[in-house]
Design a protein around this nucleic acid. Structure first.
Lengths: 231, 231
DNA sequence: AAATATTTTTGAACATGTTCAAAAAAGCTC
DNA sequence: GAGCTTTTTTGAACATGTTCAAAAATATTT
């Protein structure tokens, strides 16, 4: 309808919006490319000019929802400097935003589980998005008032991201109404993480902290697929 | 060829063997049902009388390989009673057995990531296999010479199983030659688990042990999809 | 051994994600 | 605005996993 200059960008975003709506309404598997194309008024093959695959449509959503997430927590992080509250808010909101699109998330996770897929969260292709995502956790840690053990502090953001991945995994499997159990899990694990960090500050815990950090460094999650050479 | 009484069981196992061979030779995605059928000398549709889906063929392998695993570690567990050595042996052998079939494991993982799939490791359908698998870790813990904190001891086997799942996940992504890095990861994480267990015995660590155990109990991995009611 | 019931196999058909050469539309240059 | 290039869209074709009614093979009953 609306005739913008970039006709292509127009159909692209139209396809995207129709797809996301249908995925949410009918589920990912129950929505065929032909349905999306028909509603967008183009040929089925045409979608592939704009998106490389059906899953790429979900990946697009994943990207955009990250921006939503940033906006949603931005103000909060500016004023609240307590580590526990920051972490809790960020992870909770991540799930809240995704909640209406659980079925899409499931579909994405299915492809993500394939290491060969460019949509895998650990892949080279999603590196940028992963780093952006981890940057949020850096902000949580580095701009909080809390003290952290200096060695721990460096590795922490990447593993808070992994913690969030774990929560997302639980959420995907969670069938309780409104994913109530996932939110309970967040409520109970976030304080644990905080407590563990306090513990790490104690000089007595060096004998457990050091070997753990060594493993975390040596098998860094960001280098699973492209490990650095051993030093 | 060999004319047994149960003709059906014959074709079933023939289909299975051909499938597994082709999956290992050419990869899961590069092997079509028609290829398998052709080599087995039956119609493509016929496979579905014996196996509910392509992935079910891999699931069958997964089942059988569990028995291989049990046999392989059986003697060792009878003689060696040191917890660390037992755990290390079991997890290492799990990967060693699966190593030639990594591509199949990837395919299985892809479906497993879908909570709706009966092949998901947390599903009701795979409950039996999961419990069998966890029973092995019970044996590791309960028939070792080591001491464990009594509360920890109850929950430990299920979470050692989860630890093994984590190792498998790492292995699936691991592209190093002969999956060398995965074995290094096992070498370095197993002692950590042992160390943590020792730590839990210390009465001083109650303040961290108790909340952790509470979370583990409340969000038991075996009840993700079918949670018990809150008490 | 014939008749009947059950198990197993066939083979065509279907739905679907995806590809690709050709056509159409849009942009650009003179 | 004609001619040329690039971008976008078409629509048929393909490969594949899967389904299912009908046929064939096998087992069971009488």
């Amino acid at each position: 309808m609306a005739t913008k200059t970039a006709k292509s960008e127009n159909t692209r975003s139209q396809v995207y919006e129709i797809a996301v709506r249908l995925f949410a309404e009918r589920g990912f598997d129950q929505t065929s490319m032909r349905m999306i194309a028909k509603e967008a008024g183009i040929a089925a093959g045409g979608i592939y000019y704009h998106f490389s695959s059906k899953e790429a449509l979900v990946f697009e959503y994943y990207k955009r929802s990250h921006e939503d997430h940033l906006n949603q927590v931005g103000d909060f992080l500016k004023s609240e400097k307590d580590f526990q509250k920051r972490l809790h808010k960020v992870v909770t909101d991540k799930i809240l935003i995704a909640e209406p699109y659980k079925d899409m998330a499931r579909a994405l996770f299915r492809v993500a589980a394939d290491p060969k897929s460019p949509l895998s969260p650990f892949s080279e292709e999603s590196k940028e998005l992963r780093e952006e995502s981890q940057a949020l956790f850096e902000e949580i840690v580095f701009e909080s008032n809390n003290k952290f053990h200096s060695d721990v502090k460096k590795e922490l953001p990447a593993y808070l991201w992994l913690f969030q991945m774990g929560i997302i995994l639980f959420w995907i499997y969670d069938t309780s109404p409104k994913s109530k159990r996932t939110f309970q899990l967040i409520d109970q694990t976030v304080p644990l993480i905080v407590e563990m960090n306090k513990l790490m500050l104690n000089p007595m815990s060096g004998f457990v902290r050091k070997p753990i950090l060594q493993v975390l460094k040596r098998f860094n999650i960001n280098e699973i697929q492209n490990p650095k050479k051993e030093v």
